[in-house]
Amino acid sequence: KVMEIKLIKGPKGLGFSIAGGVGNQHIPGDNSIYVTKIIEGGAAHKDGRLQIGDKILAVNSVGLEDVMHEDAVAALKNTYDVVYLKVAKP
């Protein structure tokens, strides 16, 4: 199931950690970017929809399929206060 989640960045950013990407696979044979941690009190935690194990398909208009881990981190960092995440639920 794919959904779009709109998050408003807090003082600590979006409030979640990711793993995965080309050269840094979270699941062997899979280059996808996965949510590995939700920080308590952060934007994602308060919103409640993003969960550990969700796959991040895109940030705003930037696709995160088959990208390097660093590029995924940069895509999440290089955002304004309002961030749209395209997410696939497991």
Rank of each mutant, 00 (worst) to 15 (best):
F16I: 07
V35Q: 00
E40R: 08
G10R: 05
N60G: 12
V73D: 13
L14Q: 02
G48H: 06
A75Y: 10
L57T: 12
V62C: 11
K6N: 11
G41T: 05
V35D: 02
Y84G: 11
L50C: 02
K86P: 00
G53A: 05
A19S: 14
L85I: 14
G13A: 04
A19L: 05
R49Y: 05
I5R: 00
K37P: 00
V59G: 01
A88L: 09
R49F: 05
R49C: 10
N31T: 10
E65C: 12
H26N: 03
T79Q: 10
G48I: 00
G48S: 08
K37E: 15
E40Y: 09
G20D: 02
T79I: 14
H45W: 15
G15L: 02
D30I: 04
L64F: 15
G23Q: 06
L57G: 03
K86Q: 11
K46Y: 11
I27T: 12
A75H: 14
D81G: 13
V22D: 06
G48F: 02
V59E: 00
F16E: 01
K1R: 03
M3H: 06
L50T: 02
Q25H: 07
L85Q: 01
A75S: 12
D81K: 11
G29Q: 11
P90R: 06
K6T: 06
I18A: 05
G10I: 04
S61I: 04
L7W: 02
K89A: 09
L76F: 13
N24K: 12
S17L: 11
V22P: 04
R49H: 11
D47A: 04
D30T: 06
G53E: 05
G15S: 02
N24G: 06
I52N: 11
P11M: 07
L57Y: 06
V83P: 01
N78G: 14
G20P: 03
Y84C: 14
P28S: 07
G21V: 02
K1L: 03
S32H: 09
I33P: 02
K6F: 06
K77P: 02
S32Y: 09
G21C: 02
I8G: 07
Y34W: 05
I5S: 00
G13I: 03
G23S: 12
I56N: 01
T36I: 13
V73T: 10
I52L: 12
A43K: 04
G63T: 12
K37A: 15
I5Q: 00
K12P: 11
K55W: 03
A74R: 13
I52W: 05
A74G: 09
I27L: 14
E70H: 15
V35S: 01
I52H: 09
T79W: 04
G48Y: 02
A72Y: 03
V62R: 14
V35H: 00
M68Y: 14
H45S: 15
K46M: 13
G42W: 03
A58Y: 10
D30H: 05
I33G: 01
L50E: 00
T79F: 09
S17Y: 11
L76C: 07
G41H: 11
D66R: 10
H69Q: 11
S61P: 02
S17Q: 12
D66V: 05
A58N: 11
P11A: 12
I52Y: 08
L14H: 05
G63A: 14
G20W: 02
E40L: 08
Y34E: 02
A44Y: 00
V2L: 04
V87S: 03
V87D: 01
A58Q: 13
D47P: 00
A72L: 03
V82S: 14
D81I: 04
H69A: 09
D47G: 04
L57V: 13
H69R: 11
Y80H: 09
K12R: 07
V59L: 07
E70W: 07
G53H: 10
S32N: 15
I56W: 00
L14E: 03
V59K: 00
D30S: 10
K89T: 11
I33S: 02
V67I: 13
P11H: 08
P11L: 10
G53R: 05
E40C: 10
N31Y: 03
K1D: 03
I39N: 14
A19D: 13
T36R: 06
K86W: 05
A19R: 13
I18V: 15
N78F: 06
V2H: 05
G10Y: 05
K89R: 10
A75K: 10
T79A: 13
K86M: 13
G48W: 01
G13S: 06
I38Y: 00
I33Q: 03
A19P: 00
V2D: 14
G20F: 01
V2S: 06
A43T: 15
I8N: 12
K55N: 04
V67C: 13
K6A: 07
G10N: 14
H69W: 07
L76G: 01
N24W: 07
E4H: 06
E40Q: 09
N78K: 14
V67Q: 08
G10D: 15
K37Y: 11
P11C: 10
A75P: 02
K12D: 07
G15M: 02
A44M: 02
A74Q: 07
Q51R: 10
K1P: 02
K89V: 08
G23V: 05
I52F: 08
L50V: 09
D30G: 03
I8P: 07
I52M: 09
G53S: 05
E4V: 09
I8Y: 15
N60I: 00
K77S: 14
A44R: 00
A75E: 11
A74P: 01
G29K: 05
K46C: 12
K46F: 11
G23I: 06
N78Y: 08
M68A: 14
V22G: 06
I33Y: 06
N24R: 14
L14G: 02
I39R: 10
K37L: 04
E65Q: 13
N24Y: 08
I18H: 04
Y34N: 02
K77T: 09
H45P: 01
K37D: 13
D30C: 09
G15C: 02
G15N: 01
V82Y: 10
V87R: 02
V35F: 02
E65T: 14
G42Y: 05
P90M: 11
E70L: 11
H69N: 12
G41E: 09
I38Q: 01
G20A: 02
N78V: 10
T79E: 14
A58W: 08
N60Y: 03
N78P: 08
D71K: 15
V87K: 02
I52K: 15
L57D: 03
